[in-house]
């Protein structure tokens, strides 16, 4: 029991910089929803039931432009293909989880929790209790996303300039700290450099399609350059 709690705390701790980076976005989401005339219940409901930052922003933008329902849903689906890659990457590690655990934990699969879990797998390969670490990270992220979007809604137009504090730098440096130790062989570096360069080239593509494209290209270069890393395979 104590071990589980410790793992949950570790998961939350490792996600802390990412939570800090996401907080202003939650505030901005809530404020934008309020300004766009969404009710409090719908705003809080979207954060609680959908729980996907980019998708929620895109839905707001499309709602404001009076886009048709199928267009919004389709766009949200495409944006979420990134999470599908995350889920596929984790397949090997969740094989022995019960379907109930998978169904619950998959709901909370975000960039942030995936990054934290990846780092855990990289540094402590094969250690048991991954799901508790994941759960701690996920609940922490989820809780603060709810708080921030509700807070943003209540503040509405009086939102402080939180979005301009540059707190998203915490996400950048945390991701750097997670990715760099994972770069073990030439193929990893090739993959990273390609994804980096391509993301700069495709930053203005709609609906974050540039991220997905850059990732796929990076993966392709990684495959070309070499055999797969052993590390993810324990």
């Amino acid at each position: 029991m104590q071990q589980k709690r410790k793992l949950m705390l570790l998961g939350a701790l490792e996600t802390l910089p990412l939570v800090i980076a996401a907080f202003p976005f939650g505030i901005v989401f809530g404020a934008m929803a309020q300004t766009n005339g969404l009710s409090f219940a719908v705003t809080a409901g979207m954060s609680a039931i959908v729980f996907a930052g980019s998708s929620q922003f895109i839905a707001l933008t499309l709602l404001a432009s009076a886009a048709a329902l199928p267009v919004i849903v389709m766009t949200v689906f495409i944006v979420n293909l990134r999470q599908m890659l995350y889920s596929a990457n984790l397949m090997h590690h969740v094989e022995h989880w019960s379907q109930r655990w998978r169904a619950v934990l998959a709901f909370w699969l975000t960039d942030e929790t995936f990054a934290a879990v990846t780092d855990r797998l990289n540094r402590h390969p094969g250690e048991p209790g991954l799901r508790w670490f994941y759960l701690g990270s996920a609940l922490f992220m989820y809780g603060f996303w709810q708080i921030s979007s509700v807070l943003g809604y209540l503040l509405g137009e009086q939102v402080p300039g939180l979005a301009h504090w540059g707190l998203d730098v915490a996400m950048v440096v945390a991701f750097v700290g997670i990715v760099v130790p994972a770069l073990k062989v030439r193929a990893d570096w090739g993959c990273a450099v390609t994804a980096f360069g391509c993301a700069l080239f495709s930053y203005d593509w709609p609906y974050q399609s540039g991220l997905l494209f850059s990732a796929v290209l990076g993966i392709g270069v990684g495959l070309l350059l070499g055999r797969h890393r052993e590390a993810g395979y324990v």
């Binding site: 950048v172 990732a215 797969h228």
Partner: peptide, 24 residues
Amino acid sequence: LLVRALDFVPIAVLTAIIAQVAMV
């Protein structure tokens, strides 16, 4: 081949995110 490709997902996606958040 797909298994090997998926192995690169964390590096590829997180690096692309770093690039855009840091440089744009």
